[in-house]
Write a protein that binds this DNA or RNA. Sequence first.
DNA 1: CGACGAATTGATCAAATTCAAGCGACGTGG
DNA 2: CCACGTCGCTTGAATTTGATCAATTCGTCG
Lengths: 239, 239
Amino acid sequence: MTPQTIRVACSNCNLRELCMPMGLSESDIGRLDDLVATRRKIKRGAALFSNGDRFNALYAIRTGFFKTCVATADGRDQVTGFQMAGEIIGLDGIVADRHSCDAVALEDAEVCVMPYDRIEELSREVPALQSHVHKIMSREIVREHGVMLLLGSMRAEERLAAFLLNLVQRLHARGFSQSELVLRMTREEIGSYLGLKLETVSRTFSKFAEEGIVEVKQRHVRILDTEALRAIVNAPACA
Amino acid sequence: MTPQTIRVACSNCNLRELCMPMGLSESDIGRLDDLVATRRKIKRGAALFSNGDRFNALYAIRTGFFKTCVATADGRDQVTGFQMAGEIIGLDGIVADRHSCDAVALEDAEVCVMPYDRIEELSREVPALQSHVHKIMSREIVREHGVMLLLGSMRAEERLAAFLLNLVQRLHARGFSQSELVLRMTREEIGSYLGLKLETVSRTFSKFAEEGIVEVKQRHVRILDTEALRAIVNAPACA
DNA sequence: CGACGAATTGATCAAATTCAAGCGACGTGG
DNA sequence: CCACGTCGCTTGAATTTGATCAATTCGTCG
């Protein structure tokens, strides 16, 4: 099997359960294979798409790790999310036919390119796909509600605890450890996502480490006390 | 024409251009009329839906003003948005078949109830509707990106300025003044949305008033210097 | 091995929160 | 129609949190 003959097919992709609808008939699954036009590799630090780019496809992440961010006129920017294998990015582009944020690979990555017109066409014919697309968008809306809650009403420790729990939970769903993780992003990027400065992120990591909740060695994090993190997130303000 | 005979029809609704797709054929418009099953009145302070409620419809606001909010386990809550006539609420419910936030009327309101299964069905047959639904969801995602930027990287004055500009712009699109508005929400609700305490909101209003940027009398706000507000939003941190 | 980017840590500072008091508008019931 | 009570808003003073400025240290990669 030479590279040329590799069939780009959802039907035998091990990530299918993450990005595709479940419980399809055999024939529908076959049709879904046509959704993915090509794959695309993105080098670490490169953008999959940028603010202002014409929108024409959604992307399913096969491997690698992304951040998405928006920027103000005056140069400040805000990380709006971190995305990993099996997640879909590009939804921001639908409304105005142009992307309104940047998607940057935090490590070498590969995505499945799903041309949007094909998604619309196919989801008219396959109700399960239609429903799935709606759910993906709704999920993103709900996720962002959670981030708003975090940014609007949590203190630094709560934000970082919530961030770690969320990351490790998503990694666990992909077969990784529940207690150990390697951060793909810098302190500054974490800070941007959490509405904190990088120094605050670093200090809060150190504080957690002192308290024996985590072990931190640069980007390697081992969670020693998940319950403590949960307690921090749900704490009624006072510790 | 007795009340019973009032036809609930999008085709002769003056808000149509806000909540329905444009450029439809006559026959498609006729089909869209079937989308709205009923209308529903909500008293000020009452919930259109609440966290945990079964999801079965999206709602187009006909009259009135809503807030949506999410809550933490420990009682804090976060306003995730304010919605006015012509806007669609309920998208959060699609992903899990249950609503994950509360929608509360800030004044007596009326909504068009659009059963979700009918939306899915009809949007399979009317591409313009399908596209419109996708755009509405994408727009909400992009709006929330903006809120994340606001919450994550703006100071109090910038947040309030951005909030006022956004409100007045949306009101203007509905035929209201560009410079005068009546707030439908309390300082506390504004604060929750902006990630600030009500005292900070009040102080910031006072500051703007002192500087001659706005005139504030309780919930009546008159914007005297729109450019100053814009400058505050785009200010590179230092004033 | 050296250099650069990333992370940690300390000291100081500013912004927003908290606590507290008082005012004003509005609605209800006498 | 007015008195009263409630809720929302404003303003002040003290406190807290996280930001800023600055100096090292750590790691990785030419």
